[in-house]
Design a protein around this nucleic acid. Sequence first.
DNA 1: CTGAAAGCGCTTACAG
DNA 2: CTGAAAGCGCTTACAG
Lengths: 346, 346
Amino acid sequence: LKIADVNSAEIARLAGVSRTTVSRVINDYPNVRKKTRDRVLQVIEEQNYYPSISGRVLRGKKTFAIGLFIIGFGDIAEDVLTNLMISSVIKVASANNYYVLTQMIPNIKDRKEMRNVQEVFYQKRVDAGIFVGGANHEPLIEGLIAEGFVIGVVDQDIPGRQEPNRIVMNYDTLEGTDKIIRYLAELKHTKIGMISGDLKRHSGASKYNQFFKTMEQLGLKVNPSWIVQSDFNEKSGHQAMTGFILKNKEFPTAIFAASDSIAYGALRAMQEHGLKVPEDISLIGYDDQIISSYINPALTTLRIDYKGMMKSLTMQVITTLESDNRQFISMCSDSQLIIRESCSPL
Amino acid sequence: LKIADVNSAEIARLAGVSRTTVSRVINDYPNVRKKTRDRVLQVIEEQNYYPSISGRVLRGKKTFAIGLFIIGFGDIAEDVLTNLMISSVIKVASANNYYVLTQMIPNIKDRKEMRNVQEVFYQKRVDAGIFVGGANHEPLIEGLIAEGFVIGVVDQDIPGRQEPNRIVMNYDTLEGTDKIIRYLAELKHTKIGMISGDLKRHSGASKYNQFFKTMEQLGLKVNPSWIVQSDFNEKSGHQAMTGFILKNKEFPTAIFAASDSIAYGALRAMQEHGLKVPEDISLIGYDDQIISSYINPALTTLRIDYKGMMKSLTMQVITTLESDNRQFISMCSDSQLIIRESCSPL
DNA sequence: CTGAAAGCGCTTACAG
DNA sequence: CTGAAAGCGCTTACAG
């Protein structure tokens, strides 16, 4: 008899009780005599018995597993920031006796990949899900919330959608963008360009909109040909900046990249075209991922505590699962300007 | 009736067949009339039905999940290399319709954490496991293999233990270390020191032993006070190098760090004590993780294809699960010297 | 090619 | 405080 083959009937037999009593002990119900409980616990320990999760789930117990879904990344293995978020979720979940089932979804619009995500929930593999990297309004996510699954979402702001089961974690894109532009203005920059992130994502759109607002508040003119759209990754930042350089005759004195990865790509493009940072153009990022302190010039940027964000979000998802209160919850993480070498006063 | 509540009886009713037939369709058995099959498939599609994994597993089907266990890391969220390995496993598994359940195990000797790992297998949450970061001989892993679970292990070499269910993935620590020391010798270095990794791990011990062998083959003397033991991480490398500097009057002209992280820590310690790399001391790493090309001086190191390693290992674990051949398999990844700026000729 | 019935390992009313 | 029996959602001999 292999350990894996021991079941509750075997434990019951060895302890001289019924399976009902074994179940009561496993579930820590109070109505078991202490002596009986101790005997059962001892047999469980001796036999190295672990109740089958399938049996328990089939009978209506929780899976104690959380699905983590990473949407829309190309070569995720290279994305240091995403990996940090994954680790953070796993660590917090583990510490609370939950397992994490992680899934990468390169293209969420693909019918097969959509079905894969739904499958995880409908097969009852997980009790709840956490989504990273989705568009602000993602029908798949909305559908799962509507079905009654507890869902944690990073980077979402849908006005009026405050229904139960939705747990949202953001960082302060408005105040953050404001800090960045005002810092550049303090350095006497007035000609400021921007390479935006994906505008379908909440953080992309809100950084973009706030850029115009703060510029206006500061009385600074925005030159439309200095505003380029991009995705949040290095490759896209490189493309955007290359196009920017080829298209423009006159350059801004400072550029705001909507993410550090964009900034890395932009920096690479500038170096390829003989532009020096910060001597010719100042460059500021957003995120403060680990590489930013190592590159040359070290990147001035805004630090977002992604680890802490994922920790809070995961904890809140677990708390929601364990309470019976499934109300809408929204959280927001603040940020901190990290001044390094990539921006200089004019 | 929520989607999640649809079961095979409901599908059977709507399609006008028995649950047996529904099951046959789900499992793609041949003995169903095409017309019947199509009708059932259509109802399944319409109802967005996904068979409960618990029901299937309870009846003896596979879980289609793989456990990924990361052993012994402190602040794993910061460990870029580990995160890359995690992502790689998930991507390959996903592409083959397997889910990955990841678990961090800070201290594998802790009784509670050991039980957590066993639990994953004995609760039948996964079909197989992959272990990263364990000691060469780790009783927990050996126990699971003995119990009949399919286990993929990174960095292991136990002579004579070639039993079924064991799938091993290594990188060429002997040839790699040899390449490194010979490269330093080519640069005319004869006074070479080493900061080793954890000697309980296969890669730690084999790099350590090979260092002495190659030195001997090259006719170079090893100064014992230039050999320092360390763990594979940055902090430990920093400690080791600080101790090294304080202890020694005379320094070697080159130092071999058993990992890039150790090299980062050593570099930081040297800079704190006014030692310049490579002017005063040449420094070479092992791994080529992403930061190595960004630091100053850019680190000369040996590139290990961790992503490819995890891809091969995961594929092999899945292949083993799907075949009925569970024989011992051992694989080894090669390496490539990446020459940057941290080593100079004497 | 199809279905009725048993059973996987649990938990939960129900009865005592 | 304890146990016999039913049933969660599947799959699999078995029978036809």
